[in-house]
Amino acid sequence: MTVPEKIRADGVHKVFRTRRGRIVALKDVNFSLAEGRFLAVVGPSGCGKTTLLRILAGLERCSAGRVHIRHDDPAKPATAMVFQEQSVLPWMTVRENIGYGLRLRRAAPDHIRRVVDYYLEVIGLADFADAYPYQLSGGMKQRVSVARAFAVDPEVLLMDEPFAALDEQNKMLLQEQLLKIWEGTGKTVVYITHSIDEALYLSDQVLIMTAGPGTVKEVIDVNLPRPRDIGSLRRDPVFIALFERIWLLLRQEVLRARQQAGDRTG
């Protein structure tokens, strides 16, 4: 079966000019992702993962090359991003935050209310609808930020280590919840993470990036059946084999990144 292509990156370069000179963040990045697939991106710190995601989100431009996201339904936004850091707007209530994207898209108020009510239930924050972010825990805030992205019903969901700042238990619960919301929506997802576990639990494909300047080292298919169970998955021999394979690839790059950092300071 052939699934149509949703995202394509062709020779993407990104150069930042800073006071200390040019920094090549991305160098000739090429990949493509089929519609409805969940792609996890792993790579050493500073390899340009976030830059790549920001380019896909339209928040940065490529210095050379191009990305193409097939935008089928003009009624839906092409992308919506879940940011790594706390990005829930402090001056809006939970309800206003979840509906923020829809409001900017000039959706009808009763449509916004219906969608927001639905997601308040899904993320279990119905009782906190009128609370302000300062009254929420870190995990609750990230749930709001995920709901805000889902609420605009984007064709592609971009997630930048959304649960990285949370404790292990919360992280696992939210990963589970994320899969539950995502399954059945048919959305294409690009998900950045540091954790191989997380990548394997969530994704259909894992893209491994090299140390900076970032480029694609390898893309590996994750042939694990869904729905997946976070507990038993770790004992699955396929999971273990994939974990080792990815770790070996990643290890080389992490070591290279460390050496580069040493060169720079030494």
């Binding site: 936004p77 919506a80 940011f83 706390q86 990005s87 001056w91 409001r103 900017l104």
Partner: peptide, 25 residues
Amino acid sequence: PVYLDVARNFGAGRRDFYLTVALPG
């Protein structure tokens, strides 16, 4: 700046930047 990125990512217009990010923030 992440709040401005959020607005931009959702396709905010000029008025939205004033009224939903810059002024309240």
